[in-house]
Simulated scan of single mutants.
Amino acid sequence: MENVWHNKSNRSVADLDIGNYLMEDGETIKLHEENIKENTKKLLNALVIKVFGENIPAYVINSEIKRQWSYLGKFNMTWLEKGWILCAFEDEESLETVLYNGLWYVKGQIIGVEKWKTSFSPDSL
């Protein structure tokens, strides 16, 4: 039986078999068009949000947003840098409900909500 408390040793990237994922030059990773299209489609119904004001723990933000928006169905939250969160919804109607039917708050702090776009920068407000 494996000892679950034992840290696994790191593997060198050079030891990985990534031959099928490399371009002819042997150094550049191939992009898979199907994955790009699938991920791009998911982002069509995505928002970026940020809780402004005092620092609120991520688990509190997560649970409060999920509670407030649970009636909209499934959505995924991905934590980005500088306090931004990407929220990807399954349909455009849910996205528009959040975007146009609120002022949204967590612990009395307002949530900034913006439709995600490729030019998004975590340095923007």
Rank of each mutant, 00 (worst) to 15 (best):
W5S: 09
W5P: 00
S9Y: 04
S9W: 02
S12W: 04
V13A: 10
A14N: 10
A14E: 14
A14M: 10
D17Q: 12
I18V: 15
I18G: 02
G19E: 12
N20Y: 06
L22Y: 04
L22Q: 06
M23I: 00
G26L: 06
T28D: 10
T28E: 04
T28N: 10
T28Y: 05
T28V: 05
K30H: 03
K30L: 12
K30S: 03
K30G: 02
L31M: 10
E33D: 11
E33I: 03
E34C: 01
E34Y: 03
N35F: 01
N35E: 13
I36R: 03
K37C: 06
K37E: 14
K37V: 13
K37P: 00
E38K: 14
E38I: 08
E38R: 13
E38V: 06
N39T: 01
N39W: 01
N39A: 07
T40I: 00
K41D: 10
K41L: 02
L47C: 03
K50T: 02
K50H: 05
V51K: 02
F52M: 08
F52N: 11
G53M: 03
E54C: 01
N55H: 09
I56Q: 07
I56M: 04
I56V: 15
P57Y: 01
Y59P: 00
Y59N: 15
V60N: 09
V60I: 15
V60S: 07
I61P: 02
N62F: 10
S63L: 01
E64W: 00
E64D: 14
E64M: 04
I65F: 04
R67S: 14
W69G: 07
W69E: 11
S70D: 15
Y71P: 00
Y71V: 08
Y71W: 04
Y71E: 13
G73R: 08
G73L: 08
G73Q: 05
K74I: 06
K74A: 12
F75Y: 13
F75H: 08
N76E: 15
N76H: 13
M77Y: 04
M77S: 09
M77H: 06
W79R: 15
W79T: 11
L80A: 10
E81N: 11
K82A: 05
K82I: 00
K82F: 08
K82C: 01
G83A: 07
I85P: 04
I85S: 06
I85A: 03
L86N: 12
L86H: 08
A88T: 15
E92S: 14
E93W: 06
E93V: 09
S94P: 05
L95P: 06
L95Y: 07
L95N: 04
L95E: 13
L95V: 11
T97W: 09
T97G: 01
L99N: 09
N101L: 09
G102T: 15
L103A: 12
W104V: 11
Y105D: 12
K107Y: 07
G108D: 11
G108Y: 04
I110M: 13
G112F: 13
E114A: 13
K115L: 02
K117R: 14
K117M: 09
T118G: 11
T118D: 12
S121G: 03
S121R: 09
S121I: 02
P122A: 05
P122T: 06
S124P: 00
